[in-house]
Amino acid sequence: MNSLAVKTEGLTKVYKDFWKRKSVSALTNLNLEIKHGEIFGLLGPNGSGKTTTVKLLLGFLHPTRGKSWLLDEPSGHVKTKNKIGFLPEESYLYKFLTAEEILDFYGKLFNLSRKERQKRIDELIHIVGLHPYRKRLLSKYSKGMLRRIGLAQAIINDPELIILDEPTSGLDPLGRREIKELIRTLNQQGKTILLSSHLLSDVQSICNRIAILNNGVLQVTGKVNELLSRSDVTEFLVKNLSDSDLESVKEFIRGKNGEVISMHPHLSTLEELFVNIIQHRK
């Protein structure tokens, strides 16, 4: 076998009805290779086959055709799951437990020792910012808090490969930024991350490579920078120029047969504005 974190070969999933008649082609002939240490984004609109891909990789669904491997083992291999962390698209957690209890439970499923579990729980609860609510039942958590504890459970085992399905859904901009920072930190620690999302800005800001799915078919795959770069368009970001200086720049470009497509004061993103205000108030 190769040494890839994730590999699929002709992975196909056709949902069938009770009578085994073909009903929906959810994924068609997907060939993917994700290297160790990458943050790989799986992009696509709703119903494009992202979640089906994730479920096939984890063995929750059986492929109609094709094969897939995680960390060089076939999908669904139980022992390999010791090295995998998974955050489902919604935080499907046992709501009758507290944050501490649920992390302890999942830690036990990984056969972590009591001491190790305690250390990881303390660490993770701080990382996801739920320290004040660690003894509160999950049934009393907001959607964003559930997302955070969901992420904590996904990394309780310090996994090599982390599969995150819509990790920032339900989070406020501050939460999204924190989670994105956490994903980057995890990647810097050498972990491979497969991130499925339809939020393009999230994927663009943190992924090294992406694949775009539509109607279950892989449309494009490659490095984010390469896919987004246009060789015929150049963008300047300049500071401290007067209006007359800007006019001179425009003239210079025209003189070189260039075309100025747009020139306007720089706008920060709404997310940046929101985060600045909230962090300033804190």
Partner: peptide, 14 residues
């Protein structure tokens, strides 16, 4: 139905 089984079977639990 509640999909809590995902959080179990994604762990090393047969």
């Amino acid at each position: 139905e509640n999909k809590t089984i995902f959080s179990i079977l994604s762990k090393p639990v047969s």
